[in-house]
């Protein structure tokens, strides 16, 4: 590894530490997080290894993996970690960095559309969100149709797009607070 890439990787490490908290450095690789995770069996690297990758500054491996997008935000890892680390916050930090650096994919798109809708309307409506998502990931169509039919039959799809008064303020929150 050249000195230049090493320096850049350490920059990545400190960015993750800044976003997810300095406790991360105290990780003892005990695996409590992985063994608490409901989707751990699908993850590679495991959440435990993901923390290690960040601490070693291995940016590429830390950002380009399925693990980030399999996190359900259930926070079991976070309430159980014996070092007070918040593994879910590590995942969020990595997603945030990935999104900022333009990492693309179906999962990133879903999050992107979600945030875009908040930014422009202040609230979320499932219908347009799903529609936009299906454009990038048509494989979800069957499920969405099934679900859509179920919800429409119960009158639970919002008919009109809700837009709040304070849209500009919300837009500023999204743009200015995200450094």
């Amino acid at each position: 590894m050249s000195a230049v890439t090493a320096a850049k990787d350490m920059e990545f490490k400190s960015e993750v530490l800044r976003l997810a908290g300095p406790e991360m450095q105290t990780c003892i690789q005990c695996g409590t997080c992985s063994a608490s995770c409901p989707t751990a069996h699908l993850m590679n690297p495991s959440i435990r290894k993901l923390v290690k990758l960040c601490l070693e500054g291995r940016k590429k491996e830390a950002l380009h993996n399925e693990t980030l997008w399999l996190c359900t935000s259930c926070l079991l890892c976070t309430v159980r970690c014996p070092r007070g680390i918040r593994p879910k916050a590590v995942v969020s930090a990595l997603k945030d960095i990935a999104e900022r650096e333009g990492v693309r994919g179906r999962d990133a798109s879903y999050e992107e559309f979600f945030l875009k809708q908040i930014k422009s309307n202040g609230r979320i409506a499932e219908l347009p969100l799903t529609a936009e998502f299906l454009l990038v990931y048509p494989q979800a169509a069957v499920q969405s149709m099934q679900m859509g039919l179920e919800l429409i039959s119960k009158g639970k799809i919002a008919a009109k797009l809700e837009r709040i008064e304070g849209r500009d303020e919300v837009k500023r929150i999204v743009e200015e607070l995200r450094e």
């Binding site: 005990c30 695996g31 409590t32 063994a35 608490s36 069996h41 435990r48």
Partner: peptide, 11 residues
């Protein structure tokens, strides 16, 4: 018991 064997990464 549910655990990760951290030496081979298996849950």
């Amino acid at each position: 018991l549910i655990y990760e064997d951290t030496q081979n990464g298996e849950i």
